[in-house]
Amino acid sequence: LGPKYVGLWDFKSRTDEELSFRAGDVFHVARKEEQWWWATLLDEAGGAVAQGYVPHNYLAERE
């Protein structure tokens, strides 16, 4: 699936296409579209919880 990303700060969605998340949440990014990335929010087991657009500057690649 490629690298995983972690949320740096809490983010509250403003549209139906955006995905709310908390700092520390883990994502798989499917598409990078300039300022907004289409991402899947993952649970602790790595299963998909939700999908939506997230601001790229709120995520960091997980080491």
Rank of each mutant, 00 (worst) to 15 (best):
E63H: 13
V54L: 04
L59V: 04
H56T: 07
D16G: 10
A39Q: 02
Y53F: 09
G7M: 05
T40P: 00
D16M: 08
R62C: 15
W37K: 00
Y53K: 12
D25T: 06
E63V: 12
W38M: 04
N57P: 01
W38R: 00
R31M: 08
Q35G: 13
A30L: 15
L41S: 00
W37H: 00
W9A: 07
V54N: 00
R22G: 05
L41Y: 02
Q51W: 11
H28D: 08
A60N: 06
T15N: 13
V54Y: 03
A45P: 02
N57Y: 10
Q51R: 05
W37I: 03
F21Y: 00
A50G: 11
V26W: 11
Q35D: 13
R14F: 09
Q51M: 10
A48M: 11
A30N: 15
V6W: 07
A48N: 10
W36I: 07
G7A: 15
H56Q: 12
A45T: 13
R62P: 10
F21W: 02
W36A: 06
L1W: 13
V29Y: 04
S13V: 01
S13R: 09
V54H: 05
T15K: 11
K32T: 09
G52V: 03
K32G: 03
H28G: 02
W36R: 15
A48I: 14
K4E: 14
G2R: 13
A60K: 12
V6P: 03
H28M: 11
E61S: 08
V26L: 14
A23R: 11
Y58L: 07
D25F: 08
G2E: 15
K4P: 07
E34G: 15
K12H: 14
S13M: 06
E44P: 10
T40W: 12
R14D: 11
D10S: 07
Y58G: 05
V6L: 05
D43E: 03
H56P: 12
L42Q: 01
G47Y: 14
G24R: 00
A23C: 07
Y5D: 00
A48F: 12
R31P: 04
T15G: 12
A48V: 12
S20M: 03
L1T: 12
D25E: 03
G7I: 05
A45L: 12
L1H: 13
W36L: 10
G52Q: 00
Y5Q: 04
G7P: 02
F21C: 06
W37A: 03
T15D: 08
R31K: 10
L1R: 10
V54G: 02
T15L: 09
L59F: 04
A50R: 11
A39R: 01
L8V: 07
V29K: 00
V49H: 05
F11W: 13
Y5C: 06
E33H: 10
Q51V: 11
P3E: 10
S20L: 04
G47K: 15
A39I: 05
L42P: 00
Y53E: 01
E63C: 12
L41F: 03
G7H: 03
G46F: 06
W9D: 04
K4L: 15
K32D: 03
Q35W: 12
G2I: 14
D10N: 07
N57G: 09
H56S: 15
A39C: 08
V54F: 02
G52L: 03
L8F: 02
A60V: 14
E18I: 10
E33F: 11
T40N: 04
E17R: 13
E63D: 14
D25V: 06
E33W: 08
Y58V: 02
E33R: 03
P3S: 10
G2V: 14
K12T: 15
H56N: 11
Y53M: 09
R62I: 15
A39S: 04
L42A: 00
L41D: 00
D10A: 04
Y53D: 01
E61T: 09
F21P: 01
W9T: 06
F27C: 05
A60F: 09
D16W: 08
E34R: 10
F27D: 01
L19E: 04
V26G: 03
R62E: 15
E63A: 13
S20N: 05
V26N: 07
L1Y: 12
G24L: 06
E18A: 09
D16E: 13
Y58E: 00
E34S: 13
E44F: 08
F11S: 02
K4C: 13
V26Q: 10
E34F: 08
Y5M: 02
E63M: 11
H28W: 12
E63N: 12
E34A: 13
G7R: 00
H56D: 06
F21I: 05
N57F: 09
F27G: 01
S13K: 11
G2Y: 15
R14S: 15
E33I: 07
H56K: 14
A50E: 06
G52H: 00
L41A: 00
W37P: 00
T40I: 15
R31D: 06
P55V: 08
P3C: 12
G47T: 14
V49I: 12
D10I: 08
R31L: 07
Q51H: 14
L59E: 04
E33V: 07
G46A: 03
L8N: 02
Y5H: 04
E17Q: 14
W38S: 00
W36G: 09
V6Q: 06
D16T: 10
R62Y: 15
N57E: 10
K32C: 07
G2W: 15
A50V: 04
R14G: 12
V26I: 13
E18Q: 15
E44G: 09
Y58N: 03
K12N: 14
P55W: 07
E44I: 08
P55A: 04
K4T: 15
E33D: 10
Q35A: 11
E61G: 04
H28E: 13
L8G: 02
Q51I: 09
N57A: 07
W9Q: 07
G24S: 02
H28Q: 11
A48Y: 10
A48P: 12
L19I: 10
Y58A: 11
E34Y: 09
E34C: 12
A50W: 06
Y53H: 05
V6G: 01
H56A: 15
G47P: 02
Y53W: 15
E61D: 08
A50H: 04
A48L: 09
L59M: 05
H28A: 10
T40L: 12
Y53T: 04
V54M: 01
V6K: 04
H56Y: 14
G24M: 04
W36H: 07
R14A: 13
W38Q: 02
D25W: 05
Q35S: 12
E33M: 09
F27A: 00
Y5N: 00
G24W: 04
V49C: 06
E61K: 11
T40M: 11
G46S: 05
E63W: 11
A45K: 14
L19A: 01
D16A: 13
Y5L: 02
D25G: 04
A30H: 15
A48K: 08
A39F: 02
Q51C: 09
E63F: 11
A60L: 11
L8M: 09
E61F: 08
F21K: 00
L42G: 01
Q51E: 15
P55M: 05
E18Y: 12
G52M: 03
V29T: 01
L41Q: 02
A45M: 13
A39V: 15
L59S: 00
L42R: 00
S13Y: 02
N57M: 07
S20Y: 04
E18T: 11
H56W: 12
Q35F: 15
A39Y: 04
D43Y: 06
G24P: 03
W36C: 05
T15Y: 08
G24T: 02
L42V: 06
L59D: 04
Y58Q: 02
D16S: 12
L1F: 13
R31G: 05
D43I: 05
Y58D: 02
Y5P: 00
R62N: 10
W36S: 08
W38G: 00
E34W: 06
W9S: 07
E61L: 15
V29S: 00
L8D: 02
V26E: 11
G52E: 02
D10C: 09
S20E: 06
V54W: 03
R22D: 05
L8H: 03
D25M: 07
K32M: 08
K4I: 15
F21S: 00
V26H: 09
P3F: 09
E61M: 12
Y5R: 00
Q51K: 07
R62L: 15
L1C: 13
W38T: 01
G47W: 09
V26K: 08
V6E: 06
S13I: 07
Q35E: 14
F27V: 03
A30I: 15
W38I: 08
K12I: 15
F21E: 00
Q51P: 01
T15V: 09
V6C: 09
E34M: 09
G2H: 13
G7L: 07
D25K: 02
R62W: 15
A30C: 11
A45Q: 14
A30R: 08
G7S: 14
D16I: 08
W9K: 11
K32W: 06
R62S: 13
A23N: 04
N57C: 14
Y5K: 00
T40C: 11
L59P: 01
G2M: 13
E17S: 13
